[in-house]
Design a protein around this nucleic acid. Structure first.
Lengths: 347, 347
DNA sequence: CTGAAAGCGCTTACAG
DNA sequence: CTGAAAGCGCTTACAG
């Protein structure tokens, strides 16, 4: 049975009050008699009334909806971020709506601001921050560096890159392949890749850059193979999904991780973070970032004068089983099966 | 520099035309002179005008926004689904907004319908479908069985459960632990779990039900341990994240997969689907479901008389390395290291 | 405690 | 080709 869309007008008629009164009763405002309030709410329920959030927000200012913009909703890092932010906003009485990036979006700012949210969280390294900075809604950038004065930002403090680089050097790796990411697809990943290359050079290693395929998301297979032929003993990836993607390619090449080559990722969050997979990676402080993003965006919504802070949090090294000392390679064939036990047995 | 929010009124003034004309020019409608159109669009760009989608939709009917409601945005199955649906809707000129379930949402229908979407895709086994069925927007249920006449549904054809059960029996498993899921948290998973138990019983196995913790998402550790002590040689999970969660618990118990116990999941999508992890699972036909969900919802948006179809697609067995013959257990200690090579080596 | 009126930003017949 | 007017569903001063 299709119901017709029921507006506040129908509720008001059915309850025999004016639309003004119906509105106040439905919003639970003061200054409505208890009986009126009860009738209106009962009638609304019976009629299946659902408030039109658009009209509500249109009239009442910007409402209590916050939009989070993510680059790729299929990556569980973003899902995790959205979910954690939602929990925080829930507790503060705000709703979260997720808008995912897509190829056809000429201007992400349209898709986001078209909803006229009370606040915006940008969890994507792909957007033009300038555009967002000139908006009248408070904007918080989560997960990527941004020191724009008109924007709040929360991010990790980038210690991971250095620590992973020194660990790699300590383990004796001298030739390091770094997966590069096109800046157009994600400024954050691209920047992370080049910082990574720099850190490894500073640690005394030779660096081979492996570009991603033009469509992004997947490293160029022949470049990857070449980097290994050139002596790379470890492959460093700007996030964990790329690590997995590299791992798949290595498997096709008949190479074993970490006996033949070691793997290092970044994120340490979401479904790939389980210790059973043993990824060596850097766990981003995603809970802290999400909590800060939520509380800062709310603070700026309720207090126009709240400053744009730039908060940095410390992540954590995850020492998994995809990274081994460089000299493992020498005793390759004999160590393979026992190492496999180490890699995937009960840790 | 904060810009003030700029409405069509400011654009119209700046372009020295009426709001009507500005609106038509901005919408790219016929019947506006080329010069007027150009000026208006240029001025809008200069002013940083962003159309208010709420007001647009409020006046123009329900707009071109489709809402997808997901149970838990942090699970990459849902992210994957949202992403695939978005690609399809993109191509048809619709926008997708993701609304994620949360504890504080008394009625998901409010969060979804409050946005007055042109159509709705429900990818969650948690909602009350009755509520959604009585709406005036077309609703498509994706990924869970629903034969409600007022709802379109797309799902897999449930062959996976049977096929996984017969494969398990063929491999000689006689005692099967099945992870049970509370119906309140997800009707789909709960139903899948009980269907799974039924299928294994029909295949001649003894079944031990292992409940999840009250908060859901994680199996009860002591019940899990007991099921293994009771002789279960394989643990069947209603989705892949639960498989991973079980795997973690087994690791803590000092048990190895699949030497000590085998693992079977369900979904075969998202980040856990990579062959490097070797999950044995059932790959849901998520591309087909997403494509069908998108095209059916659009069909019903544009054609009020389009019927509510119930489409079922065939998934695919993923024969990974977490499932081994039951008799592996006997030669446990000797086979462990070589098996580990099989499990995690180059497949 | 309640209602009539104005208006949020937009679109769309309807006239010109 | 363009504009004045009505109205989408709601909220909120303002009067009573």
């Amino acid at each position: 049975m299709k119901k017709e869309r029921v507006s506040i007008h129908e509720v008001a008629s059915a309850a025999a009050v004016s639309r003004s009164t119906a509105s106040r009763a439905l919003l639970g405002q003061e200054g409505v008699s208890q009986t009126t309030r009860d009738t209106v709410q009962r009638v609304a329920r019976e009629l299946g009334y659902v408030r039109d959030l658009r009209a509500h927000a249109l009239k009442a200012g910007s409402g209590r909806t916050v939009v989070i913009y993510v680059r790729a909703v299929q990556l569980s890092y973003y899902g995790q971020m959205a979910s954690l932010v939602q929990r925080e906003l829930d507790a503060r009485g705000y709703e979260l709506v997720v808008v995912a990036g897509s190829a056809s979006q000429a201007r992400p700012v349209d898709a986001v601001m078209g909803l006229r949210p009370a606040g915006v969280i940008v969890a994507s390294g792909r957007v033009d921050l300038e555009e967002f900075a000139s908006l009248d809604a408070p904007v918080v950038v989560a997960g990527s560096d941004a020191d724009h004065p008109g924007l709040t930002s929360v991010a990790d403090d980038n210690q991971g890159i250095k620590q992973l680089a020194s660990l790699t050097a300590e383990l004796g790796h001298r030739v390091v392949a770094v997966i590069d990411f096109p800046p157009g697809a994600s400024a954050t990943l691209s920047r992370r890749a080049s910082e990574t290359a720099k850190a490894h050079r500073r640690a005394g290693s030779e660096v081979r850059l492996v570009p991603c395929m033009p469509e992004g998301e997947v490293p160029d297979p022949s470049a990857l193979r070449r980097s290994i032929e050139d002596g790379a003993t470890v492959i460093v990836c700007p996030n964990d999904p790329l690590l997995v993607s590299v791992w798949e390619q290595l498997t096709h090449l008949g190479l074993t991780v970490p006996e033949d080559v070691s793997l290092i990722g970044y994120d340490g969050r979401g479904e790939l973070a389980s210790p059973v997979f043993g990824l060596t990676t850097w766990a981003q402080p995603i809970e802290a970032m999400a909590a800060a993003a939520a509380s800062e965006v709310v603070a700026r919504i309720v207090d126009d004068g709240h400053p744009c802070r730039h908060l940095r949090f410390r992540g954590e090294l995850v020492r998994g089983r995809t990274l081994a000392p460089a000299d493992r390679r020498s005793s390759e064939s004999s160590s393979r099966s026992t190492t496999a036990t180490t890699v995937h047995g009960t840790a």
